[in-house]
């Protein structure tokens, strides 16, 4: 039991990192950024090349992969979403799906279809605490994910940029009247969300020792489910949703069959949409007139 819980939390912290990208972008643009899974994939490839090919020290490579993915995320927004700012939401959604397919194919072209191995560039030790078997890699994943989430929470709650992001998410027009450059805030949002997705990509790439151009598809969808589960647009919700989804999946696999792994996630999505579409922490905003 405890063993499954640990596995679930490791997986869940990854989903949470991915979910944050969806939820932040949704918060400011009410857009499901379907290209987010591909940002995660791009992050994994960047991490692979920077550590294995360029032999950079891991922390440096990790930060550079996040920065590189942030740049890709900001570029995607500039090219595919910003010109459609005043278009119907469906148009932007289709543009997002198109961007997702484009990035997958670009990656296939650049990297080839084969799955690459991504051995962690540091030694991994098995760790045993009583009945629980884990590894130093799992501990690193959990710790890095938690640090990133705490950092994000600090940024959103305490810094001027973070407050401006929340203001922009609540009311773009009024935010502009405050002297906030709304386009710039949207770019920051994409940069931060994408860098978290890339961090997840690098961590998973090493965890599974596998990186390939299509790897963003399923985790991307799972991250989306986690975001909806927690209440889309809600940052603590995305974190909670990720952890719950990861844990539910691991327990589901333990008690049922492993092929049902993905079915569990999407069953959760359907149940949430039926019972509480606003998610666990989602609130219906009320306005005083």
């Amino acid at each position: 039991m405890l063993q499954q819980l640990v596995n679930g939390l490791v997986l869940g912290s990854i989903y949470a990192l991915i979910a944050l990208g969806y939820t932040m972008v949704y918060g400011v643009l009410q857009l499901i950024n379907f290209a987010h899974g591909e940002i995660y994939m791009a992050g994994a490839f960047l991490g692979l090349y920077l550590t294995v090919s360029l032999k950079l020290p891991f922390p440096v490579a990790f930060v550079l992969a996040m920065a590189g993915a942030a740049l890709i995320g900001v570029t995607v927004e500039r090219i595919a979403y910003r010109p459609l700012r005043r278009s119907p939401r469906l148009a932007v959604l289709i543009s997002a799906i198109g961007m997702s397919i484009f990035l997958q194919n670009l990656s296939l072209y650049l990297n080839g279809p084969a799955t690459r191995g991504f051995l962690p560039p540091f030694k991994v030790y098995p760790i045993r605490i009583g009945e629980i078997k884990t590894s130093s890699l799992e501990v690193i994943i959990l710790v890095v994910a938690i640090l990133l989430m705490v950092g994000l929470q600090y940024l959103i709650r305490r810094t001027k940029i973070g407050k401006a992001m929340r203001a922009t998410a609540l009311d773009k027009e009024t935010a502009a009247l405050m002297g906030i450059n709304v386009d710039r805030i949207i770019s920051y949002t994409f940069a931060i969300g994408s860098s978290l997705g890339a961090a997840a990509g690098v961590l998973v790439g090493m965890y599974l020792n596998a990186v390939d151009p299509m790897m963003g598809l399923m985790p991307g969808l799972k991250g989306f489910v986690a975001a909806v589960l927690g209440g889309i647009g809600n940052i603590p919700g995305a974190m909670a949703g990720g952890l719950i989804l990861g844990t539910a999946e691991v327990f589901g696999v333990a008690f049922m069959r492993s092929e049902w792994r993905d079915a569990i996630a999407f069953a959760i999505l359907i149940v949430v949409l039926l019972i509480k579409p606003s998610g666990i922490l989602g609130q219906n905003t009320q306005e005083k007139v």
């Binding site: 001027k160 929340r166 609540l170 009247l177 005083k288």
Partner: peptide, 21 residues
Amino acid sequence: PEGRRVFTRLTVLENLEMGAY
């Protein structure tokens, strides 16, 4: 703006800080 449009989920203090953004 018309209808006040305060940032409802930001605190009063944060709203004022946004004014000085």
